[in-house]
């Protein structure tokens, strides 16, 4: 660990297998923080138990989260994304096949971006 201090690390990396202990510590903290979010919601519900009201609230969560992710994504897009999104909706609705819907949608967005 005798690296010269004047050289900022992000210009000095040469070894692709370099492992910096500080970087590993930050990555470990990121991994723990992320796992807490992934496991925490379910863990908490199992511990505190759930009333009928909470169960009703949880039932609307999947759709609500999907809409909450989707709304701003679509709002920040333009006409090609909106049209391709409509294509995905129609194909998903008619076929019920997510793979067909995704492939058609990605094809549509490429086409609409080229045309519009």
């Amino acid at each position: 660990m005798a690296s010269p201090p004047p050289s900022p690390r992000w210009f000095a990396v040469t070894d692709p297998l370099a492992i910096n202990p500080t970087v590993v510590a930050v990555i470990a903290a990121m991994a723990i923080a992320t796992y807490l979010t992934k496991a925490g919601g379910l863990w908490l519900l199992t511990r505190i138990g759930v009333s009928d009201r909470v169960e009703a609230a949880l039932e609307v969560l999947p759709g609500a989260i999907v809409v909450a992710v989707l709304g701003p994504e679509l709002a920040s897009g333009g006409l090609p994304e909106w049209l391709a999104g409509s294509v995905v909706a129609v194909v998903a609705w008619r076929t019920g096949n997510i793979f067909v819907a995704l492939v058609t949608g990605v094809g549509a967005v490429i086409a609409f971006r080229a045309i519009l």
Partner: peptide, 21 residues
Amino acid sequence: TFGLDFVLVATFVALAVELWD
């Protein structure tokens, strides 16, 4: 470049259709 940025949106649109009750 390959429309890959649209995959997340497309996945969620398809899911929304699926979850519509």
